[in-house]
Design a protein around this nucleic acid. Structure first.
Lengths: 156, 156
DNA sequence: ATCAATGCAAACCTTTTGCACGCGT
DNA sequence: ACGCGTGCAAAAGGTTTGCATTGAT
């Protein structure tokens, strides 16, 4: 087995591992592991980037021709509530979703606006900045994203 | 004239001043100063917070009963392209808009998710954080917003 | 008088929902 | 067998567009 094959095999292995972990979490909550649900997790893991509900639907329809948006959205909603995926609204035309970075608790992303690929940002502005909220302002959440084009997507 | 009246007058004065500045900028670009366009700028200045296209429409319909979404959106689009308003997508159900903070070049906001009111955040994470983009990632923009409830909107 | 702005209506796109049936447990 | 998950269809929002008319300059 060549080095190339080995790394490929390794990638597959960790993918399967991760998928198993995600599905176990759903199972533990009493949700059923349907074929479509598993495929959504598979695709999101394999893509490892932000993709739209439409992209997801189109990929899945190759296997499940009668699949429609409602099921995709219902599953995305479930996965989001369970904290297994992340949602963002960059670009035009609605939300995009990616598998949650389960190895890092709190994080922010560099996001490629062309392909949706992400990289982790070091640190969080809420820690680094001397954030002092206005009088009486109760902070509940924040959003920090850096947009641009990844090495694969821009010419030079 | 009482102090109260005076401050009220002052507020009106600076509002009118700001409105004039915004409208002049449109005029300079060759756009027509229609009543509806002026009213949108007026409302956004008076509100000084993020509001939805729907809120805008409803306020304006008191004066222009036949006004519909298309005109509101067309004007919002124009104002956005001209850099006179800012758009955000917090909460559910689409975009919200506020008059641009023309006195500050680059900035970020504390945003009240209940009323849309904003406060300026001191500093920008891109300056404060030791941002080092991944190999080959070409940074084009970023988004940083702190959400919560302002003093007026939460009980305690 | 000219050309942008508006009203109206319809289309578009993403996302959600009600209901009956099918499938994982 | 039970009850969640799914397909179908339709609706719900938000936003955009074509076209004829109105209105600012």
């Amino acid at each position: 087995m060549s080095e190339k094959d080995h790394s490929h095999d390794h990638a597959h292995h960790s993918h399967a591992e991760a998928k198993h972990r995600f599905l176990e979490r759903l199972k533990g909550q009493g949700f059923k592991l349907t074929g479509k649900r598993q495929m959504i997790v598979s695709i999101l893991l394999a893509e490892d980037r932000y993709i739209s509900a439409k992209e997801l639907l189109e990929q899945m329809q190759k296997t499940f021709p009668r699949l429609s948006f409602d099921t995709v959205y219902r599953n995305l909603h479930l996965l989001k509530v369970e904290g297994l995926i992340e949602e963002s609204t960059f670009g035009d035309g609605g939300s995009k979703y990616r598998i949650a970075c389960d190895t890092h608790d709190h994080h922010h992303h560099y996001i490629c606006t062309l392909c949706g690929k992400t990289e982790l940002v070091e640190g969080c502005p809420m820690d680094m900045l001397g954030i002092t909220a206005p009088q009486g302002f109760k902070i509940e959440s924040h959003r920090f994203e850096i947009f641009g084009q990844c090495a694969d997507c821009h010419p030079v």
